[in-house]
Amino acid sequence: MKVFVLIMLLMTGGLLAYGVKDFPGWSNPNAPASTHVSPRYIQAAYTKTHTPNIVTAVLADYRGYDTLGETVVIFTAGMGVILMLRKKRRNKGKDNV
């Protein structure tokens, strides 16, 4: 079992390494990820949102609905945790009675 898993991991890692072969080098300023849309955000963020921090400008202004959805996800997770742990406690109380 362990040998099989190790072979599978080596194959997966090899595939990922093969994909990395075509990447631009780490921290290359001319990489496509840094030249396609991000210059526009860096240049326009202050004039459009009046926030010096570009990350928070994109998080709360450009992607405000995305952040709202994230809050819904956290709310659902918290509700799930509360319901799961509370239901267990109530069952225990019934058993004791």
């Binding site: 990820a33 840094s34 991000s38 955000y41 860096i42 963020a45 570009i54 994109v58």
Partner: peptide, 8 residues
């Protein structure tokens, strides 16, 4: 843009 990291 070369002065700042990519924020996205």
């Amino acid at each position: 843009p070369l002065q700042y990291m990519n924020p996205l």
